[in-house]
């Protein structure tokens, strides 16, 4: 077999794709959080960071296309594998007790699908900035700071003052981290790296990373809601 074809044809190949794209997306989620946390350094810092990201469109669009491809492959393999997995058990159990498996591991597809919806909303909300979805009655495009750059800081504060939006954000990020609590250590399993003495290490890496991410991401809307950042 063509050494690349197996990635798309066999169940294990698809798991590698899933793991590799998952790793890429995980890396993005980490970088994205680090970027976002500049919110706490003040308006100037985060706005400058945003301006910097947009200053080289080639890089920006390169990254965006890369992410899109990874999301596409991740979703495609998820759908393929789920269909195959479902077909592998046409008649289910009357009674089923889950033993030894975490809630996160059993709900990867569900959490993934909801995260997908959340990401679409999130893009419309903060990236494309469709006015109709931010429920503030304002157009985020109009927000500019002293240096005439887009005022990302203000956008975040304004956006997160909407309770339903914030709640969705909290839930979406929560699910993302639930997804990652299994996904991160599992991707090392799929790539064959989680063996022997590395097993506990990689398992706790997945566990702690998901907590770091959830706290990092939640801190922004929570601080806005609590009025710590205005």
């Amino acid at each position: 077999m063509n050494p690349l074809a197996f990635l798309f044809r066999t169940s294990l190949g698809k798991k590698y794709l899933m793991a590799l794209t998952g790793f890429g997306l995980f890396a993005f989620v980490v970088v994205h959080m680090v970027g976002n946390l500049q919110f706490f350094l003040g308006r100037e810092a985060i706005n400058r960071y945003a301006y910097f990201l947009h200053s080289v469109p080639e890089l920006l669009w390169g990254a965006r296309i890369g992410l899109l491809v990874m999301v596409g492959l991740h979703v495609w393999t998820a759908i393929q594998l789920s269909a195959e997995n479902r077909a592998a058990r046409p008649i289910g159990y009357k009674r089923k007790k889950a033993l030894g498996s975490s809630y996160a591991s059993r709900t990867m597809l569900m959490s993934g699908l909801i995260i997908g919806c959340f990401v679409i909303y999130h893009l419309l909300h903060f990236t494309v900035q469709v006015p109709e979805v931010n429920f503030t009655g304002k157009d985020f495009h109009d927000l500019v700071d002293a240096e005439k750059h887009h005022d990302v800081y203000q956008m975040m504060v304004t956006g997160f003052l909407q309770p339903w939006v914030t709640l969705f954000y909290i839930v979406g990020v929560g699910l993302l981290c639930l997804h990652l609590s299994h996904g991160v250590s599992s991707l090392f399993q799929s790539l064959g790296l989680r063996t022997g003495k590395y097993t506990p290490l990689l398992k706790s890496f997945g566990f702690w990373m998901s907590w770091v991410l959830v706290i990092g991401y939640w801190s922004i809307p929570i601080s806005v809601v609590l009025g710590l950042k205005k």
Partner: peptide, 28 residues
């Protein structure tokens, strides 16, 4: 057969307690 999601339920019910580690070795 379906694919592995590494949930670990196989390891939990295995009467010989075969470790999930072996699946990682297979993947590699």
């Amino acid at each position: 057969f379906g694919a592995c999601t590494a949930t670990g339920s196989c390891e939990a019910v295995c009467p010989k307690e075969i470790s999930l580690d072996f699946i990682a070795q297979l993947n590699r």
